[in-house]
């Protein structure tokens, strides 16, 4: 019974909502009556047991009391399970969101690195060859200026330059091939990394959309009733209210069957 009492207290606390004096005033409440949680718990217990006393034989009463406790505890437990599940899903969603953000940032960074690398490689090669070409031409020219002073130059300068450039071009081709191999490996690595990041991003985004689709993580709040209630037979105005309910029903039946 102690556990039931504390569960009742927990349930009442969970169902209660906070409000401020200003909010109450806005709703037109100037004065509130206060009742302690222990008193509410005792009243519920008392009400249940009185109602059982009036309505049931002692044997049934025991059974109903046990069944009621079990049902109450089951409801509380199912509510706790739900809250736990929601909590887990919320955490999963947060993690997925963080991952997606990180993956998006990584992807952009890798794409930027790749573009930079390709750009720098091309610019370096262009600058290198331009400088080399100028240096070779300068040295050949200097050599033939010296030879010119001795009278041994002539067509020889042009042919020598062609020969040198031919040999240099061959060397350059080899060098380019070697550099390209290194660069291709780096580009391959970067492209593989980008592909992996893109696929992770897609997967995480899909997971995120699935988690988000779970009705905004809100399974709703359980009603306090497991079954349709109806008028309480012990109500002193039972007969009167029953007639009123029948009147409302008849009016609605006429209205709804017509429409």
């Amino acid at each position: 019974m102690g556990s039931l009492k504390s569960n009742l207290k927990d349930a009442v606390k969970k169902l209660a909502f906070s409000t401020s004096v200003d909010q109450l005033k806005k709703k037109g409440v100037d004065k509130v009556n206060v009742i302690g949680i222990d008193r509410i718990t005792v009243l519920i217990e008392e009400a249940v047991s009185r109602s059982l006393r009036f309505k049931l034989l002692s044997l049934d009463r025991e059974e109903v009391a046990v069944a009621t406790k079990e049902e109450f505890l089951r409801l509380l437990k199912s509510n706790e399970d739900l809250e736990r599940e929601q909590d887990t899903l919320r955490k999963l969603k947060e993690q997925a969101e963080v991952q997606v953000d990180q993956l998006r940032r990584d992807l952009v960074e890798q794409q930027r690195l790749l573009a930079d690398k390709l750009d720098v490689a091309e610019r370096n090669a262009r600058d290198d060859y331009l400088g080399e070409n100028e240096a070779i031409a300068h040295r050949v020219k200097s050599l033939f200026e010296v030879l010119g002073q001795t009278g041994a130059a002539g067509d020889l300068e042009k042919r020598t330059l062609e020969l040198v450039m031919d040999i240099v071009s061959g060397e350059r081709r080899e060098s380019i091939r070697a550099r390209e191999q290194v660069r291709d490996r780096e580009v391959d690595n970067l492209q593989r990394r980008i592909r992996k990041l893109t696929s992770s991003l897609e997967e995480t985004e899909h997971r995120l959309s699935e988690v988000t689709a779970i009705r905004n993580l809100d399974e709703g709040i359980s009603s306090v009733y497991r079954e349709v209630q109806g008028l309480n037979r012990s109500d002193r105005a039972y007969g009167h209210k029953k007639e009123l309910m029948a009147d409302i029903f008849r009016a609605n039946l006429a209205l709804q069957k017509k429409s």
Binding site: Y225, V228, Q229, G230, L231, N232, K241, K242, M245, A246, I248, F249, N252, L253, Q256
Partner: peptide, 12 residues
């Protein structure tokens, strides 16, 4: 709503 009998709800 609470006091309305089950059969009335079901009829509608």
């Amino acid at each position: 709503a609470h006091d309305m009998p089950k059969e009335f709800w079901e009829d509608l």
